[in-house]
């Protein structure tokens, strides 16, 4: 069986999908990155290689904030930004979608789609309030599992008002409301409302949010946030079946189209990468005013990838059969 491999290396989670040539999802995996993108991809891939027997990789697409690193390591055929990847996956799942809300570990995105193509997008710039990391933190503070937090929030009947502008203030506001004696459900419902308000004010400013809406990313599992969005937007919010791996699915779809269109075969280096540990080191290049932070990756002391230099002075040293291109368009 031939599969296209899609990997989304995010700040909090690493998602991997195997997709067949008929664009059907064969297997998916969502694991926490725990600050170690290389290790989590290695763990994830070996886990999936065990469950799927007798397969061949036809192409590899990577996306997410760690795309450059993992793309170079694996010999990916396509390195794509996460906004396009998410949009492509969404249109695949629901061709008539017009608004995509994506909330991940450290960033949130709003993508507007008209006639099946992206017409506008926004990404949080200076603030991470309302993203997965913050919810994680609050759940830990309240001694709840992050999934419970959403369920509890959805039960809140009279949401209290929480200041959602800043994660730190939101937290102190929540503590204050707890001390006032409000039930936890109402406080959590209030928190969800505040985060949604923050999202719509920050990213949706001046933009036309039209149904159908799709909500994806790790936070889409949160029932409370989903409710709050439905209330704020006044329409049904759809959460796709594979909401947590949509970025990876998008990367797989894109690499499939690309390889079929260009009639090329994959550059994937194979699974031997899984077993060998990767060591990384970094240094500041003093060659010019740019002072790039250069990162080197070595396997068995052989330089396998080099990142971060703007002038390619250091990357050139990597002897490679072919470099993956960061594809735009």
């Amino acid at each position: 069986m031939k599969y296209y491999l899609g990997i989304d290396i995010g700040s909090v989670s690493t998602n991997i999908v195997f997709m067949n040539a008929q664009k059907e999802l064969a297997a998916k995996l969502y694991i926490r990155s725990q600050g170690d993108p290389v290790g989590s991809v290695q763990r994830g891939l070996s886990q999936m290689a065990k469950t799927l027997k007798d397969f061949e990789i036809a192409g590899v697409g990577v996306t997410g904030s760690g795309r450059l690193l993992i793309g170079k390591l694996l010999g990916a055929d396509l390195i794509k930004n996460e906004i396009t990847a998410h949009a492509v996956a969404c249109v695949h799942v629901m061709p008539e979608v017009q608004t995509v809300i994506e909330i991940g570990g450290q960033d949130s995105k709003l993508i507007l789609i008209r006639d099946g193509i992206v017409s506008d997008f926004a990404m949080n710039t200076v603030c991470a309030a309302g993203t997965g990391s913050f919810l994680d933190q609050q759940a830990a503070r309240l001694n709840l599992h992050v999934a419970e937090l959403g369920e509890k929030a959805a039960k809140g009947r009279h949401p209290v008002r929480i200041a959602g502008r800043c994660a730190v203030f939101a937290e102190s506001d929540m503590i204050h409301k707890q001390q006032m004696g409000h039930p936890l459900e109402d406080i959590l419902a209030g928190l969800c409302n505040a985060l949604v308000r923050n999202f719509i004010n920050n990213l949706g400013k001046g933009k036309e949010l039209k149904p159908p809406f799709i909500f994806q990313g790790g936070v889409a599992a949160n029932l409370g946030i989903r409710r709050a969005f439905e209330e704020a937007l006044g329409d049904r919010i759809l959460v796709p079946e594979d909401y947590e791996v949509m970025g990876a699915l998008g990367a797989a779809l894109l690499v499939r189209d690309e390889l079929l269109y260009q009639k090329k075969t994959t550059r994937f280096k194979g699974f031997q990468f899984i077993n060998e540990p990767v060591t990384t080191s970094s240094f500041d290049c003093e060659g010019c005013a740019n002072q790039c932070e250069v990162v080197e990756l070595r396997q068995a002391n052989i330089l396998i990838a080099c990142l971060g230099d703007r002038c390619n002075k250091w990357s050139q040293r990597v002897i490679e059969i072919s470099e993956p291109n960061i594809q735009v368009g």
């Binding site: 794509k80 396009t84 992206v118 017409s119 710039t125 200076v126 735009v328």
Partner: peptide, 28 residues
Amino acid sequence: IIDEHAAEAGVRTRLEAFIDLLKHRHWK
């Protein structure tokens, strides 16, 4: 929007996505 906290990776992601958007629009 750029200041000392802006990260190059974030700016690049937005630029890449924007160029994708323009290309797809143009093709369409």
